[in-house]
Design a protein around this nucleic acid. Structure first.
Lengths: 150, 150
DNA sequence: GTTCAAGTTGAAGTGAACTTGAGTTCAAGG
DNA sequence: CCTTGAACTCAAGTTCACTTCAACTTGAAC
């Protein structure tokens, strides 16, 4: 346990948590202690990478589960997956850039008025319900706790 | 209350929360109901903009408090502030781009191995303690619950 | 004078991703 | 055998930014 923790960089508690969540597996030795196979280190590396990209535990579980045969990723898998992640990162980058350019457009206008400033206008959120470009995609919104008031 | 909620786009509960947190003020009428001045709408617009940029309530309170005389922003204030926010957004964008380019460099390598893949390597986090470029700045990390294990 | 939507309060709940704590057991060294 | 440090379990705590609930009061219209 201490070893895998040191080598993966995750806290022991995090590793136990991932096991409980079904992201990794461990078999037990004699009196109940976890023993990990080497492949678990790869899975943990995968988990770290995925969570750097901003995936939730749920999504990581899905993605791990979608690997045919539930194995650790091969070259081909990794190729496919990193395309997916790249797209996600692009989307996040684009969202921030939209926000930035809105801000740039605002610099010096001193407005911040409710009806004229697109940057702070709440209407931007309510109005862009359709599949148009939003200021921020869901992936960058603050983890909204409950259902939306809409 | 209903009116300011409608006009600001915030839920009534959020507005009460902001008042409790000291971000806005309200004086009370006769039997305890909140009455807001028009300037509060501007403050709320400011709050929305700031939280779009990713500032926490704490930071927003600071920034509102730093406005000399605790007024709503003038043109000059807004100019200064939006530069600050722009820098922050730039930093976030740059961080995501670093992540993306790391990922691009990895596509097809199929590695994801602990010692060779910089993208998933935990060492990247532990090693870059100095003021060097990190993969992700704190502002983009998942809101880590407690103190770091370091 | 009645009615009722809209407002009030304080406490408690939400979700994500873990961490912390308490109390217990394992395993290796001396 | 004894000690010590690492690991175990399970429940509860943490942070953030709010929301929801229950029980009650206001205030504007009819």
């Amino acid at each position: 346990m201490g070893e895998i923790s040191r080598r993966s960089g995750f806290a022991a508690s995090a590793i136990r948590y991932y096991e409980a969540e079904g992201l990794i597996e461990a078999h037990r030795s004699g009196g109940g202690q976890r023993r990990f196979e080497r492949s678990v280190l790869r899975r943990l590396a995968f988990i770290r990478a995925a969570s750097n990209v901003g995936l939730s535990i749920e999504e990581i579980r899905d993605e791990l589960g979608r690997l045919p045969g539930n194995r650790t990723p091969t070259k081909a898998d990794w190729h496919r997956i990193s395309k997916h992640w790249g797209a996600r990162l692009d989307e996040q980058i684009a969202a921030l850039q939209r926000l930035k350019s809105g801000l740039d457009g605002c610099i010096g206008c001193g407005c911040l008025s409710l009806r004229s400033c697109a940057f702070s206008n709440a209407g931007d959120w309510a109005a862009s319900q359709g599949p148009g470009a939003q200021l921020l995609p869901d992936s960058l919104r603050k983890p909204h706790p409950t259902k939306r008031t809409s």
